[in-house]
Amino acid sequence: MVQKMKIAKIISTKQVVVNAGSNVGLKVGDKLEIIDKFGDDPIIDPDTGENLGTLDLVKGTVIVSKVYPHMVIADSPKTSTMANLMQPNYLPGFIIQKDLNVDPSQITGGFPETSDQQIHIGDIVVKR
């Protein structure tokens, strides 16, 4: 059975805490997706009648950076500026860390930012 993980705390627009840790086998570098269910109606296989599940929308992707027994700290992805050669203000050799689309009212540190499809405490997290 897959461990049901959730966002437990929003540290900033770049870090969250997930309520699962080494107790379920998470380790540094694991990629996690924060998901939103697209409706509650199950998708049914027309041939077998089997319930195939529901559609998931990905709100954000995070990478585990620190593991505790029952929680992890996970960071938004980092990219090299080499991928951004054509962007204005390009600075070679710098790493850019993307912001997560979090609910600003739930940030426990940093400056709030507004955005659509906000990440909330209690959102489901899955290992991919």
Rank of each mutant, 00 (worst) to 15 (best):
G110W: 06
D47K: 10
P42H: 10
T61K: 02
Y68I: 04
V18Y: 02
N51M: 09
N101A: 07
L26D: 03
V17P: 00
G29T: 00
I96D: 12
I73M: 13
K59M: 03
V58E: 03
P112S: 07
K37A: 05
Q97R: 12
Q87I: 14
K98W: 15
S65N: 06
Q15N: 00
D75G: 08
Q97Y: 05
S80L: 12
V24P: 08
I107N: 08
D47N: 09
A74P: 09
Q106L: 15
I107H: 05
P92Y: 03
I107K: 07
G29A: 04
M71Y: 12
M86Y: 15
I63V: 11
M82R: 09
F111Y: 08
G53D: 14
D99L: 04
M71T: 15
I96Q: 10
D99E: 14
A20E: 14
N19Y: 05
L57E: 09
V72R: 01
G110T: 11
I96S: 11
P92K: 00
K98I: 10
A20M: 09
K66H: 07
T48Y: 04
H70G: 08
M86C: 15
G53P: 14
P46R: 10
N101S: 10
V18Q: 01
S80G: 15
A83Y: 10
I73H: 12
M86Q: 13
V17F: 01
V24S: 09
M71P: 13
V72G: 06
K37W: 01
N101P: 05
P104K: 12
D47F: 06
V72A: 04
D75P: 10
Q15D: 07
M86G: 15
T81D: 12
E33M: 06
K78S: 15
V16F: 02
P46E: 09
D47A: 14
I63D: 02
S76M: 08
P92N: 07
G109M: 13
I96P: 05
L91F: 12
P42N: 13
V72L: 01
G39C: 00
I35W: 01
K98F: 13
T48I: 07
L91K: 13
N51G: 09
S22L: 03
L100A: 02
P88M: 14
I34Y: 01
V17M: 04
L32F: 02
K59S: 03
K27P: 00
S80P: 08
I95F: 13
E33H: 00
V28F: 04
T79S: 15
T61A: 04
G49E: 12
Q106S: 11
L100N: 01
K31I: 14
G60S: 05
P46D: 09
D36T: 01
D41E: 15
N51C: 09
T108F: 11
T114N: 03
L55W: 09
T48Q: 05
N101R: 11
V62A: 02
L32V: 05
P46H: 09
T79F: 15
P88R: 15
I107T: 07
F94V: 15
